[in-house]
Nucleic acid binder design. Structure first.
Length: 512
RNA sequence: GGGCCGUUAGCUCAAUUGGCAGAGCAGGGGCCUCUUAAGCCCAAGGUUGUUGGUUCGAUUCCAACACGGCCCA
């Protein structure tokens, strides 16, 4: 066997295993019955998989247009709708059914005297879960339910497998994530989350578009990763015979666009980080980063406040977060001191800070532990913030002016020694955005890369690789620039009230 | 990585101090022309996550593993 054939077979075996296709339990009777019924019930000359069903209206539109109809009132208006059969209530010579499309649910009323013997009995035997197109007159039942009295219908696609429980839907969270199609078809709430997600993404784009930003697309496959402190996924380009990395951020390429004179750019897309999975982390996630020439980090704080408020309006957000400007702003050093009693700038090296942590009554009283063993000063400072401050930040808050050592791409603070012009935004107890006055002095940037290299040599696995092409770009002159990275998944979590990222990612990463 | 919890019919859930595993819905056969978790009658549906162990007997007790959830790292 050639090497390529072997690789292909291995890949196929992996794919089969990861789909679980080899071990799916069959549903022999249920499938066979549905298959047989489908064939039996097909009128002569019809296919159970027609190519189209034109001239339908969204169900919600029918509801809106006939909202005024009184109970028992009938019209002569014909409407066509299409969707999935969700419920059926037989009556012998009449029946009610519920049809669901992306916009809502509507009741269908089938009557023997309208449809005739054959069409009526065929309709009654259509399986729950089948896709159905119907045409009928609009009426409201005596009990007040808007309905279509069917005078014509067509099976649009056969469902061979039974749908989830018509009332309870899918309760097993594992199945909801692994077979999201079943979750979507049975839960209007789930559908709404992903509709809201789309509106959020769309609102972010339009907010930036309206302010003179252009959307750009930079490489996902990168010869060198950078722009964040994270471990990358590694892959291989066969023709070039070289290692490539899936991007962990878009930062460095976007700044090269700024050097090139595009002045206001953004990119909204997937980043990949080869790290743990948690309620706040998926290995691939969506981020928007924007960069703006001639602006600094405080200008970007205001822009971020406005953008988030605008996006919240776009989904009619009515939760507990107050997104209106200005958000609370507190210094990194002050926030840590307030929460832990430790002045990190007064203990500006690892042994001294470790000693201060060990001596802190607030730390001891909190029951939280900080692992000081072998930790660098920046790691300790970051740990203090993420353990003592971050979980308390429910309302939108900017933590501003980070220690310089934590921020290899941010400019030194114009007036506060040892700090960088950087903020992170928090809400709902988690980080949602990160911004700098971007470092544009190539010589200082070179020193920062060299410092990162020293950390890597000392065993730190999350460091910035030395990026010569980026340095050369800076040497051509980058204007003063403000840049922001905003996590879309987390923003969606906040605005849809979900507590785990898996609820806002259609197909989250799962084992096997 | 650690701790705790979970995994039973297609779906939603019961039950077992260790002794033939039960409902509702869905599916099958009937009845029913304003129902909406429709209703009524009948029949069917199970390797109780996997592999071992203890036991006369394990779905139940024990161990390991797999997958998932929550909390911690």
């Amino acid at each position: 066997m050639s090497k390529i054939e072997h690789e292909q077979q291995t890949a196929q075996a992996d794919a089969a295993a990861s789909n679980g296709s080899a071990e799916r339990p069959p549903l022999p009777e249920l499938l066979a019955v549905r298959r047989a019924k489908a064939r039996q019930l097909l009128p002569p000359g019809e296919t159970q998989f027609p190519y189209s069903y034109p001239d339908t209206k969204p169900i919600q539109e029918v509801h809106e247009h006939f909202a005024h109809l009184a109970a028992g009132e009938e019209t002569e208006d014909l409407r066509r709708v299409a969707g999935r059969l969700a419920a059926r209530r037989g009556q012998g010579k009449a029946a009610f059914m519920d049809l669901v499309d992306r916009s809502g649910r509507i009741q269908l009323h089938a009557r023997l005297d309208v449809l005739g013997e054959e069409a009526f009995s065929r309709l009654l035997q259509i399986d729950l879960g089948d896709l159905l197109g119907v045409q009928g007159v609009v009426m409201r039942s005596n009990r007040g339910e808007l309905s279509l009295r069917i005078d014509d219908y067509r099976v649009l696609a056969k469902s061979l497998r039974p749908p989830p429980d018509k009332h309870h839907g899918l309760a097993d969270v594992e199945t909801r994530y692994r077979q999201r199609e079943l979750d979507l078809m049975s839960s209007e709430e789930t559908r709404q989350v992903f509709i809201d997600r789309a509106r959020i993404v769309s609102a972010v784009r339009s907010h930036l578009d309206q302010r003179g930003f252009i959307e750009v697309e930079t490489p996902v496959l990168q010869p060198l990763y950078g722009g964040a402190l994270a471990r990358p996924f590694t892959t291989h380009h066969n023709a070039l015979d070289r290692t490539l990395y899936l991007r962990i951020a878009t930062e460095l390429y976007l700044k090269r666009c700024i050097v090139g004179g595009l002045e206001r750019v953004y990119e909204l897309g997937k980043d990949f980080r080869n790290e743990g999975i948690s309620t706040k982390h998926n290995p691939e996630f969506t981020m928007v980063e924007w960069y703006e020439a001639y602006a600094d980090y405080l200008h970007e704080a205001t822009r971020t406040e406005e953008l988030v408020a605008d996006v919240a309006r776009a989904v009619s957000y009515s939760g507990e977060l107050d997104c209106s400007s200005p958000w609370r702003r507190i210094g990194f050093v002050e926030a840590v001191q307030e929460a832990s009693g430790i002045d990190i700038m007064a203990h500006h090296d690892a042994p001294s800070l470790a000693a201060a942590i060990a001596a802190s009554e607030a730390v001891a009283a909190s029951g939280l532990s900080i692992d000081t063993e072998g930790a660098s000063w920046p790691q300790l400072a970051d740990d203090l913030l993420s353990k003592f401050v971050e979980p308390q930040l429910r309302q939108p808050t900017f933590i501003i002016d980070y220690p310089l050592e934590l921020s290899p791409f941010a400019r030194a603070h114009r007036s506060k020694p040892g700090l960088a012009e950087r903020w992170e935004a928090f809400a709902g107890g988690m980080e949602i955005a990160n911004a700098f006055s971007e470092l544009n002095d190539p010589d200082i940037q070179r020193e920062r890369f060299e410092a990162q290299r020293r950390l890597a040599d000392a065993g730190d696995e999350e460091t910035q690789p030395y990026d010569q092409l980026f340095l050369e770009a800076l040497e051509h002159g980058m204007p003063p620039t403000g840049g922001v990275g905003l996590g879309i998944d987390r923003l969606v979590m906040l605005l849809t009230g979900r507590s785990t990222i898996r609820e806002v990612v259609l197909f989250p990463a799962m084992r096997t």
